[in-house]
Simulated assay, not measured.
Amino acid sequence: MKTRAAVMLAPGEDWKVAEIDLAPPRFGEVLVEFTHAGLCFSDEHLRHGGLGDLPAVGGHEGAGIIREIGEGVTGLAVGDHVAASFIPTCGRCDWCVSGHSNLCASAANSPGSADPDTFRFSLDGNTIPANCGLGTFARHSVVSAKTVIKVDPEIPLDVVAVVSCGVLTGWGAAVHAAEVRVGDTVVVVGAGGVGINAAQGARFAGAAHIVMVDVNPAKLEFAKRFGSTAEFDSPAKAAEYLWSVNPVAGGADVVIVCTGNTTQAVVTSAYEMLGTRGRLVLAGMSQDVFEPNVHLPGTQIVFREQTIRGTIYGSCNPRHEVPIILDLYRQGRINLDELVSATYRLDDINDGFADLRAGKNLRGVVAHG
């Protein structure tokens, strides 16, 4: 069959919207009609050529409806509403069975790791990969059944789309990776789609103070709706405030970095807000994913018993936690509708990414169709 998709042909170019060929599902695969796709900085990293092979169909955050089932697929049916999971959950590898399915061994999200035998898209007669094995920037995609999660059909699919990546990444960064505790003072650096949900996770975990740091005043104002208790446009201003609210630690108990381009300067300024026995969590990537961007005073980390760690997918188990987050949304206990600040047609995807880079949106969503 043919489908319309946004394709990145070479590093640094704009997305090209084209009609491309799509092969039918094989064993263990499903055909998904993606109704919505989130615009995430990770696809910007793909655009710069550091996160996967090009050319490729973009998109790793999304939601849609199953239209066809391949042989050997169980637990899913035609018509099911699903969330995309940019890391699969095979349920068999050591990481999955030990409760760390965000590190599933069958993931294909690192440069050069995608198996050409899994490529179902073709452009000009040549097979091409889909970002993270998903390609949510295509109206239709054939994906492994391990990369979709069945959801309640009553929940709007644009909401499901943003939960599939940005919400879980931020939420889990606070709840799982940072292990925010009742009474903690938490700083979130970067008030975008991931950072806002780190604030929601910190609030849910019982943080006493949630401090947002971002240079964009509109995002800081928006953060107040998601649990922020104080907002600053620079780490230096935040650091002064932290001493006043948490003098024993001399800084934050937790600092979570959620910036779209996490440079060495960003990491260093984040560390300078960290208090004694504090936990610094890196949830945002650098534009060059191999860039050495952590250069910190190790002996001070020893003296103050501080912890530095990274997190992918918020250290969540997506098949378990996507339904949990959506149930909390249904109960009115977390905000998700407000995350979708702009909706674009597929033909306008380059405008959407321009708005993302300019900091105009909390989360932009492409609506297929």
Rank of each mutant, 00 (worst) to 15 (best):
M8Q: 15
W15G: 08
K16M: 08
A18E: 15
E19H: 09
E19C: 11
R26S: 13
G28L: 10
F34P: 02
H36S: 01
L39R: 02
H48I: 05
L51Q: 15
L54M: 11
A56N: 14
G58P: 08
G62H: 04
G64K: 04
G70H: 01
G70F: 00
L76W: 03
F86E: 03
G91P: 02
R92F: 04
W95P: 00
C96L: 07
L103Y: 09
A108Y: 09
S110H: 14
P111V: 05
S113K: 10
S113L: 08
D115A: 06
P116C: 07
T118H: 13
F119I: 00
L123S: 06
G125S: 06
G133E: 10
G133L: 10
R139W: 05
H140F: 14
S144W: 03
V151H: 02
D152S: 08
P153T: 03
E154S: 15
C165P: 10
V167D: 03
L168T: 14
T169R: 13
G172Q: 12
A174G: 09
H176C: 01
A178N: 08
V182R: 13
V186W: 00
V189R: 12
I196C: 01
A198R: 01
A198W: 04
A202W: 03
R203T: 13
F204Q: 09
F204G: 03
A205P: 04
A208D: 04
V215S: 09
V215T: 12
N216A: 13
P217S: 11
L220F: 02
K224Q: 14
R225G: 09
G227H: 10
T229E: 04
T229H: 05
A230Q: 10
E240M: 08
E240S: 11
V245H: 12
V245T: 11
N246L: 11
G251S: 13
V257N: 00
N261L: 14
T262W: 05
V267F: 03
G275K: 13
T276N: 11
G278T: 05
L280M: 14
S286D: 11
Q287K: 15
D288N: 15
E291S: 09
L296T: 07
P297F: 05
V302D: 08
R304Y: 06
E305Y: 04
I308Y: 12
Y313F: 14
Y313S: 09
P318E: 07
R319W: 14
E321W: 01
E321M: 06
V322C: 12
P323K: 13
D327F: 05
L328D: 04
R330E: 12
D348V: 05
A354M: 10
D355N: 14
V366P: 03
A367N: 07
